[in-house]
Amino acid sequence: TEEYTYTDKEKADRAAKEWANRGYTVTVTQDGPTYRVRVG
């Protein structure tokens, strides 16, 4: 499991979509002003 942190919702959504397109399980959680994209 890897985790990426973004401050921009659009970038987080785009990253999540790209990982999902590659067949990974993706979870996006909002943590205050940041968005965490957990992959795998």
Rank of each mutant, 00 (worst) to 15 (best):
1 T>W: 15
1 T>K: 07
1 T>G: 12
1 T>V: 14
1 T>Y: 15
1 T>I: 14
1 T>F: 15
2 E>S: 14
2 E>T: 15
2 E>H: 15
2 E>I: 15
2 E>M: 15
2 E>G: 13
2 E>W: 15
2 E>Q: 15
2 E>A: 14
2 E>K: 15
2 E>Y: 15
3 E>P: 04
3 E>R: 04
3 E>W: 11
3 E>M: 08
4 Y>H: 05
4 Y>G: 03
4 Y>F: 13
4 Y>P: 02
4 Y>R: 05
5 T>Q: 08
5 T>N: 07
5 T>G: 05
5 T>D: 06
5 T>W: 13
5 T>M: 10
6 Y>N: 01
6 Y>Q: 00
6 Y>L: 02
6 Y>W: 04
6 Y>V: 02
6 Y>S: 02
6 Y>H: 03
6 Y>C: 03
6 Y>A: 01
6 Y>I: 02
6 Y>T: 05
7 T>I: 11
7 T>E: 11
7 T>Q: 10
7 T>S: 10
7 T>N: 11
7 T>R: 09
7 T>H: 11
8 D>M: 05
8 D>E: 08
8 D>F: 04
8 D>Y: 04
9 K>D: 03
9 K>R: 12
9 K>T: 04
9 K>S: 07
9 K>H: 07
9 K>Y: 11
9 K>W: 13
9 K>N: 04
9 K>L: 07
10 E>F: 09
10 E>T: 09
10 E>I: 10
10 E>H: 10
10 E>K: 09
12 A>P: 00
12 A>K: 01
12 A>M: 04
12 A>H: 00
12 A>W: 02
12 A>F: 03
12 A>Q: 01
12 A>R: 02
12 A>D: 00
13 D>S: 09
13 D>T: 10
13 D>K: 08
13 D>A: 09
13 D>I: 14
13 D>Q: 12
14 R>M: 12
14 R>E: 13
14 R>F: 10
14 R>G: 07
14 R>S: 11
15 A>F: 08
15 A>R: 04
15 A>W: 06
15 A>L: 05
15 A>K: 06
15 A>Q: 06
15 A>M: 08
15 A>H: 06
15 A>E: 06
16 A>G: 05
16 A>M: 06
16 A>Y: 05
16 A>P: 00
16 A>H: 03
16 A>K: 04
16 A>L: 04
16 A>T: 04
16 A>V: 06
17 K>V: 10
17 K>I: 11
17 K>L: 13
17 K>M: 12
18 E>F: 15
18 E>D: 10
18 E>S: 08
18 E>T: 07
18 E>Y: 15
19 W>F: 09
19 W>A: 04
19 W>T: 01
19 W>R: 01
19 W>G: 01
19 W>I: 03
20 A>M: 13
20 A>T: 11
20 A>F: 09
20 A>I: 13
20 A>W: 07
21 N>W: 07
21 N>F: 08
21 N>E: 14
21 N>K: 13
21 N>T: 09
21 N>R: 13
21 N>D: 14
21 N>V: 09
21 N>A: 14
22 R>F: 06
22 R>T: 04
23 G>P: 00
23 G>F: 03
23 G>I: 00
23 G>S: 02
23 G>T: 01
24 Y>E: 02
24 Y>M: 05
24 Y>G: 01
24 Y>T: 02
24 Y>S: 02
24 Y>Q: 03
24 Y>H: 05
24 Y>P: 00
24 Y>V: 04
25 T>P: 06
25 T>I: 12
25 T>Q: 11
26 V>M: 01
26 V>F: 02
26 V>T: 05
26 V>H: 00
26 V>G: 00
26 V>P: 02
27 T>Q: 08
27 T>D: 06
27 T>C: 07
27 T>F: 07
27 T>Y: 09
27 T>L: 08
28 V>N: 02
28 V>D: 00
28 V>P: 00
28 V>W: 03
28 V>L: 07
28 V>H: 02
28 V>I: 12
29 T>P: 00
29 T>D: 07
29 T>G: 04
29 T>M: 10
29 T>R: 07
29 T>V: 13
30 Q>M: 10
30 Q>N: 07
30 Q>L: 09
30 Q>R: 10
31 D>K: 06
31 D>S: 07
31 D>R: 05
31 D>Y: 08
31 D>N: 08
31 D>I: 12
32 G>I: 02
32 G>L: 03
32 G>N: 02
32 G>Q: 01
32 G>M: 02
33 P>Y: 10
33 P>A: 12
33 P>T: 12
33 P>D: 15
33 P>Q: 12
33 P>H: 12
34 T>E: 09
34 T>G: 07
34 T>C: 14
34 T>W: 14
34 T>R: 08
34 T>M: 13
34 T>D: 07
34 T>Q: 08
35 Y>Q: 01
35 Y>E: 00
35 Y>L: 03
35 Y>V: 04
35 Y>W: 15
35 Y>N: 01
36 R>N: 07
36 R>Y: 13
36 R>K: 14
36 R>E: 04
36 R>F: 12
36 R>P: 01
36 R>Q: 07
37 V>Y: 01
37 V>P: 00
37 V>T: 01
38 R>Y: 13
38 R>V: 15
38 R>T: 15
38 R>L: 14
38 R>K: 12
39 V>R: 04
39 V>D: 00
39 V>K: 03
39 V>L: 06
39 V>F: 04
39 V>T: 03
39 V>G: 01
40 G>M: 14
40 G>P: 04
40 G>A: 14
40 G>H: 14
40 G>N: 13
